[in-house]
Nucleic acid binder design. Structure first.
Length: 845
RNA sequence: GGGCGGUUAGCUCAGUGGAAGAGCACUGCGCUUACAACGCAGGGGUCGGCGGUUCGAACCCGUCACCGCCCACCA
């Protein structure tokens, strides 16, 4: 070992290679379930790059995993890549400047066709998917390298991607099971819709963002005379108005209930109904029901049981008025049509301006528009507010499963427990079933076809499913059983479902993607349910929720016994680090600058579930610890002589303290408290071992005292293992110092107190430390060096302590460079009184 | 609006009924044959406020304030 830290990269590379080549972290498929610990690793989204939060939370997983491995468990620690989905599509569009046009034919060599400079090139669905595959493979390689540098003890033979064949097979098969059990339904209904991505989205992908809006007061007429004002932020939905509602107790509007209102501009008679969901405090207390402004509108629309008048098209523009036989149920259809024509084709924002102008011109607005700030629903990856659009989508019903889902959550142990509450809150707050179909391309195809009736219409009730043996299938490319490709799209033939699953519908199955489900029953029984699901808290409502859901629906199981939640990495201003804020710390930078062990030390310092401010000081501390471990090891391993029985009172006392530390640290690991385990280990290492014992034992150790040598070697051996889950590189390096054949510390057994003599601490070590500290303090105050001789050391104290001191006095004297001692027992005071007289010979400057 | 966390030294954080802690930063001393990318010693806090329980409260209870996160039907 050299002392230059610049050799860290070589040390890391050496052991990284060794671990891979010798299969240190390989899962042993022959060992029984009872000896196995299974990690359901979060597959990171493969788009762009890994960030510091990944390093943080993946290290937490690895800490637990390494500890479990050292307790003798057979660890199954796979790695998945979540490449399936929208983020990859978006990257491919940007990188290659293409867009997917499913109507185009496949082109074998796309480069021949490569588009004109600067122009977006339309490509077939298959070509598009090939480009996606290409992009993710490059990223997966980079991710793997980073994770290996971080020393994740993953079994790299066990990897998968959420778009690979195995994942598509599991995803489709599991869906077909749900379909068979009636737990997947095709519905033609209003669904939350992103107008830019032009896809349905699920509740879990929706977030509220505060946005400025304008409240317009609009005058409605009443059939038979009269009028009233409604307030709305969405006047462009006026042509979609199908009703008006107020609270039944609201005296202002009680007389209107049961009558018809007449909408301005469009003259549509619409019913005025009473509903307790109407809030008298908001706006004017009476509001219009439109198809569709929000989820409440969908509810009311169902109650009213009238045809929808959808005005928002899938691309976010205003549709022509095409509902019903007559374009307008209106007292003045011509005027209504004229007004609507002015809106048709406009974007939502343009339509809003336009209709406000028309309302103003018609004198149908009242007062000044009022600015308000209110929450608006967005797709989490989207830029424009979500709309409700009627479309045909696949749903997995969850609204009627809330109780079971909460019960399942309670069978799982959450670390820390408060996140179980967050999961339960999410389940209780569900307000719609889980929409799993997406109008995208790079995903797992929905494995169904629909019959085409003789009249050429698609019969969505006649669903054709593939044989299990043919999975995975692409219904866009393959024909259903009993049909041939030339019947595609023809009367009496079939059409493939054009959609793909939401990426969560596949990630929900990670525990069974890796387990061999359902065909390899032997493997599955050994790997499922899994032991640990680690993830950060923002995806409790997505990944954790969907995984629990799918396990419940598939076979009533829980997917894991424990969930470990990591916090976020915040910048010093306590904001979440993110690219857009420009405050990111790149993982590769800190790994290179401080070394992997130091980065892991920083992660390990944070408890589960706690958001942590990024602090380079902790990284420096970690690096300092690594250096210290190497230096202390060099001293200990450099002593010459044969170790023997531990019998010197100082050694016995010191070893007895180490026994307590081993127990305490073990208990902390068992409690999922890696931060506490680190802190306990580190303070023993730093205070007991290096600051004091290494100094006190030096004289005897240099003289080859068997008791001291044995104490030193066994302590080092144990403390290396206590540090091993956190600092895999430096512990491996020291562990193998002097070995001809490397033998990994990471497959060694976790230390137990049985390895040390069964001794009690009589306190002599701490007495020695107390006296040594007094000597050091005196020298420090006298501004002399630590080796300056002490002429006389006078100590009085209770006889018990004095006895202890006498037993270890040789070490104290040698360490303090003491020439004369005067030790007196006295029962006058309970504490030792230490008087240090330095030699008169002046220190020479 | 509802829920969950948090508030301890200048900074980052431990500590959950029994004499206020660590690391960093700061001050002083010291190149000591493991370590100057270091060591030794030291200064620094009425534990967010106010009530209460208790022999005793940073810790338990109540209440308020502030910070953060999650959720909520966008009129």
């Amino acid at each position: 070992m050299t002392k230059k830290p610049s050799d860290l990269p070589e040390i890391e590379a050496k052991w990284r290679r060794f671990w891979l080549e010798s299969g240190t972290y390989r899962y042993d498929a022959t060992r029984p379930r009872s000896e196995t610990f299974v990690v359901d690793t979060p597959p990171p989204t493969v788009s762009g790059s890994l960030h510091i939060g990944h390093v943080f939370s993946f290290t937490h997983t690895d800490l637990i995993t390494r500890y479990k491995r050292m307790t003798g468990l057979n660890v199954f620690y796979p790695m998945g890549w979540d490449d399936n989905g929208l983020p990859t599509e978006r990257r491919v569009q940007n990188v290659f400047n293409v867009r997917c046009d499913p109507s185009l034919p496949y082109v074998a060599d796309l480069s021949l066709e490569w588009g004109r400079e600067g122009e977006t090139m339309p490509v077939s669905r298959t070509n598009f998917i090939e480009l996606c595959d290409q992009v993710v493979q490059e990223d997966e390689k980079k991710f793997q390298e980073l994770f290996q540098q971080l020393a994740l003890s993953v079994d790299w033979n066990e990897t998968y991607a959420t778009i690979d064949e195995r994942s598509r097979y599991v995803s489709q098969l599991s869906f077909l099971h749900l379909l068979e059990k009636g737990l997947a339904e095709l519905r033609d209904a209003p669904t939350m819709w992103d107008v830019d991505f032009q896809t349905a989205v699920a509740q879990a992908e929706v977030e509220d963002r505060d946005r400025d809006g304008t409240f317009y007061k609009i005058r409605f007429g009443v059939e038979g005379g009269g009028d009233f004002l409604i307030a709305t932020t969405r006047p462009e939905l006026l042509p979609a108005c199908i009703g008006v509602t107020a609270h039944p107790d609201d005296k202002r509007y009680r007389d209107l209930i049961g009558k018809n209102a007449i909408t301005p501009l469009f003259g549509a008679p619409v019913p005025i109904i009473a509903d307790e969901a109407a809030d008298p405090e908001k706006g004017t207390g009476i509001l219009m029901i439109c198809t569709f402004g929000d989820a409440q509108d969908v509810e009311w629309w169902r109650q009213l049981a009238v045809p929808a008048r959808e005005v928002i098209a899938r691309d976010g523009t205003i549709k022509p008025a095409t509902w019903g036989d007559e374009p307008w149920a209106s007292i003045d259809p011509g005027t209504a049509q004229t007004h609507h024509d002015k809106l048709t084709g406009l974007s939502i924002n343009q339509a809003r301006k336009s209709i406000v102008q028309m309302l103003d011109d018609a004198g149908a607005t009242e007062g000044e528009p009022e600015k308000i700030r209110r929450p608006v629903k967005f797709f989490e990856k989207g830029d424009r507010p979500l709309e409700f659009v009627v479309s045909r989508q696949w749903f997995i019903p969850v609204m009627d499963k809330k109780k079971e889902l909460i019960d399942q959550g309670r069978k799982i142990t959450w670390h820390p427990d408060m996140f179980r509450k967050r999961y339960e809150d999410w389940v209780e707050g569900l307000n719609q079933d889980w929409c799993v179909s997406r109008q995208r391309y790079f995903g797992v195809p929905i494995p169904v076809w629909y019959e085409i009736a003789a009249d050429g219409t698609i019969d969505y009730d006649s669903i054709l499913v593939p044989a299990k043996e043919s999975l995975p299938v692409d219904p866009f490319e393959q024909a259903p059983p009993g049909y041939t490709e030339d019947q595609r799209g023809k009367p009496g033939g079939f059409t493939g479902d054009p959609d793909v699953f939401d990426t969560w519908a596949t990630s929900a199955l990670t525990p069974i993607i890796t387990s061999g489900w359902p065909d390899d029953t032997e493997r599955h029984d050994r790997l499922y349910p899994t032991s640990l699901r680690p993830n950060a808290h923002e995806i409790i409502r997505t990944w954790d929720f969907v995984t629990i859901t799918r396990s419940l629906l598939e076979d009533g199981t829980i997917p894991w016994t424990d969930v470990a939640i990591s916090g976020w990495v915040l910048d010093p201003d306590r904001k979440k680090m993110s690219k857009s804020k420009g405050n990111v710390v790149l993982p590769t930078d800190i790994l290179d600058e401080f070394g992997s062990d130091a980065v892991r030390y920083w992660s390990a310092s944070a408890r589960l579930g706690v958001d942590t401010a990024f602090d380079a000081g902790v990284l420096r501390e970690g690096k300092r610890l690594v250096t210290k471990i190497r230096n202390a090891s060099r001293l200990i391993l450099g002593y010459e002589g044969e170790p023997g029985e531990i019998q010197h009172p100082l050694d016995v006392s010191f070893v007895a303290r180490l026994r307590r530390v081993v127990d305490e640290v073990t208990e902390q690991w068992q409690d999922w408290n890696h931060a506490g385990a680190l802190s306990t280990t580190e303070s023993w290492f730093w205070n007991d071992l290096t600051d004091n014992y290494l100094e006190l034992s030096k004289a005897r150790a240099y003289a080859g005292d068997p008791s001291a040598l044995s104490t030193l070697l066994r302590s080092l051996n144990i403390v290396l293992r206590l540090f091993a889950p956190i600092l895999p590189y430096v512990t491996e390096e020291v562990w193998n110092t002097g070995r001809d054949e490397p033998m990994s510390i990471h497959t060694s057994r976790w230390p137990t107190i049985d390895e040390l003599p069964d001794v009690e601490d009589d306190g002599s070590f701490m007495v020695a430390v107390e006296v040594l500290s007094a000597i050091r303090r005196t020298k420090s105050e006298a501004k002399v060096s630590i080796k300056f001789p002490v002429d006389r050391l006078s100590i009085t104290g209770p006889s018990g302590k004095i006895e202890l001191l006498r037993s270890v006095l040789d070490d104290v004297v040698a360490t303090g460079n003491v020439e004369n001692t005067e030790i007196v027992g006295s029962e006058d005071n309970e504490d030792l009184s230490v008087d240090v007289t330095l030699s008169s010979g002046e220190k020479t400057a």
